[in-house]
């Protein structure tokens, strides 16, 4: 019983891991053109007057706290 749960859990985790890797590395070519490397700029251009990498469109749209 534990053995099956273990193998099953491993399988699921492996699938999730590879899906995530694929997601990270193919996203750039997709239509919405999201490039993860762009996020590095969040540290480099972090003055309060700099343009955000991906701005929050409307600040009051009920973000979870």
């Amino acid at each position: 019983m534990q053995g099956y749960a273990y193998v099953g859990a491993m399988g699921v985790l492996i699938v999730v891991l590879y899906a995530y890797i694929t997601h990270l590395y193919t996203k750039k070519k997709n239509a919405d053109g999201l490039d993860y490397e762009k996020y590095s700029d969040m540290a480099l251009n972090d003055d309060i007057s700099d343009v955000p990498v991906a701005p929050v469109a409307d600040k009051s749209d009920g973000k979870k706290k």
Binding site: A54, P55, V56
Partner: peptide, 8 residues
């Protein structure tokens, strides 16, 4: 985080 300007 709730009042942030940077979405990500």
């Amino acid at each position: 985080i709730g009042i942030r300007r940077e979405k990500s």
